[in-house]
């Protein structure tokens, strides 16, 4: 039991010292992917290839999400192992807060705008 424990701690120490610098292959893959993922949404909007604003909007948002993931993995070296998973935990927590703040703000303010439209008879309100 004692030996197993020692081996664990050693491995842990090694992981801490070996900071993930990435590889040339990783950076080039990430760069290639992000060039493609940037070029396509710009082309979609500039040429109006889809001919439909809603479809274009959804497509470019999807490309943005994929590109953010690509940057996180290839440039920021995100994984579930670094710092015993705490970076991933912090990221997930932040994403939850971001989603709550963004959807909450947009949802509430959208309905506020609709209810404050001229033509809405406010004199009938209690």
């Amino acid at each position: 039991m004692s030996a197993g424990h020692h081996a664990d701690t050693k491995e842990h120490g090694h992981a801490d010292h070996g900071v993930d610098h990435g590889t040339l292959r990783g950076y080039l893959t990430g760069f290639g992917l992000s060039v493609v993922l940037t070029a396509i949404p710009f082309w979609l909007v500039m040429s109006n290839a889809l001919g439909n604003q809603m479809a274009s909007a959804i497509a470019i948002m999807a490309f943005a999400v994929v590109q953010i993931v690509v940057h996180m993995v290839f440039f920021l070296h995100m994984n579930t192992r670094s710092e015993s998973g705490w970076t991933m935990m912090a990221l997930i927590f932040t994403l939850i807060l971001v989603v709550i703040a963004l959807t909450g703000s947009l949802w509430v303010m959208y309905h506020l705008n609709i209810n404050m439209m001229p033509g809405h008879d406010m004199s009938q309100m209690p």
């Binding site: 705490w86 970076t87 912090a90 932040t94 807060l97 971001v98 703040a101 947009l106 303010m109």
Partner: peptide
């Protein structure tokens, strides 16, 4: 330090999220 800096970046991310929300509204 790296974990601490990552947490700083996450707090910076929240600042930008708020600014995106303001722009969205």
């Amino acid at each position: 330090t790296m974990l601490g800096f990552w947490i700083y970046l996450m707090s910076d991310c929240l600042i930008f999220a708020m600014l995106f929300a303001v722009y969205g509204v």
